[in-house]
């Protein structure tokens, strides 16, 4: 079966004192090739754990993840990762970072050069190819990270709060870039974010997760990402439907947070 399947995945961490944390319980999802899904939820809902399982960094306690019918057993270049920040190799230049995947895979030099040229063009960093990455701003660094991930032509791109550390203006511009890349490359993307607005704007599908145990609380199918590919982000974000969905999700998450507080510290 094509696409990414997550079947009844549970994840239980055993604490040193013998206690257990149910990070994920019976999570099931299916993404068709080319879908963009945003995952949202309060801290502790297991969204990063879920991403780590799909990436192959963690093996689930039960259940499985499948990509195009193949079982995920470890990291693989078919599933690319974009981290929040600090995952670039600061001892390399921009071009060396972008070409890392193909170089490790032993691709021919001319092909690598061409690919780097092309990708740096897409993320508008051609001028900076030979600069060390630590001289770049935060937004530019995340563009390098996107290009580095795309250089391997992954089937799925996993983004762990890739825009979380950026300032509001840069963040908005980067959201447009993510949409553009999604449409142009047709990749399957899972994007984890803390920002409800970002999830609404980028997620063709939006999954809200709930904590204790981590599980899928509600799922939406949204039109905004398609509109955002060519449309004006500001206009989309002031549509009544956008605002009402945002308020609905915000109060949902608010309630979850209240519940945690009530059951925990406030008691």
């Amino acid at each position: 079966m094509d696409g990414l399947s997550i079947d009844d995945v549970s994840m239980v961490f055993t604490l040193p004192n013998g206690g257990e944390v149910h990070a994920l319980e019976d999570v099931s999802l299916h993404l068709k090739p080319g879908e963009l899904m945003a995952v949202l939820g309060p801290s502790g809902c297991g969204k990063t754990t879920l991403l780590n399982i799909i990436a192959g960094f963690l093996a689930p306690t039960s259940g499985q993840a499948l990509l195009n019918g193949r079982l995920v057993t470890g990291p693989h270049k078919e599933r690319g990762m974009v981290f929040q920040q600090g995952a670039l190799f600061e001892w390399m230049t921009v071009a060396e970072n972008v070409s890392f995947g193909p170089r490790m895979g032993g691709a021919p030099r001319p092909e690598i050069a061409e690919k780097v040229e092309h990708l740096l063009g897409i993320v508008a960093l051609r001028e900076f190819a030979d600069k060390p990455v630590y001289q770049l701003s935060g937004g530019m660094q995340q563009r390098v990270a996107l290009a580095r991930c795309l250089a391997n032509d992954p089937d799925v791109i996993l983004m762990d709060e890739p825009l979380g550390a950026l300032d509001a203006l840069t963040r908005e511009k980067m959201q447009g870039l993510v949409l553009k890349l999604w449409k142009e490359t047709g990749r399957t993307i899972i994007l984890i974010t803390h920002s409800v607005e970002e999830a609404l704007f980028l997620g063709e599908r939006l999954v809200v997760m709930a904590p204790r145990p981590g599980r899928i609380h509600k799922e939406y199918t949204l039109p905004f990402a398609d509109q955002g590919v060519d449309g004006d982000a500001r206009e989309i974000k002031v549509q009544p439907e956008f605002i009402s969905t945002r308020e609905e999700i915000l109060s949902m998450i608010w309630e979850m947070e209240e519940e945690i507080m009530g059951g925990g510290e406030a008691g």
Binding site: A55, F57, G74, P75, H76, K77, R79, G80, M81, F83, Q84, G86, A87, L88, F89, F100, G101, M104, G105, R148, C149, A151, N152
Partner: peptide
Amino acid sequence: RISKVHAAYSLGASRTQVLRH
């Protein structure tokens, strides 16, 4: 930083390559 190691593996690097690069 573990995210660098994870990134390298996700980009298809082998163990030796992770060590070296």
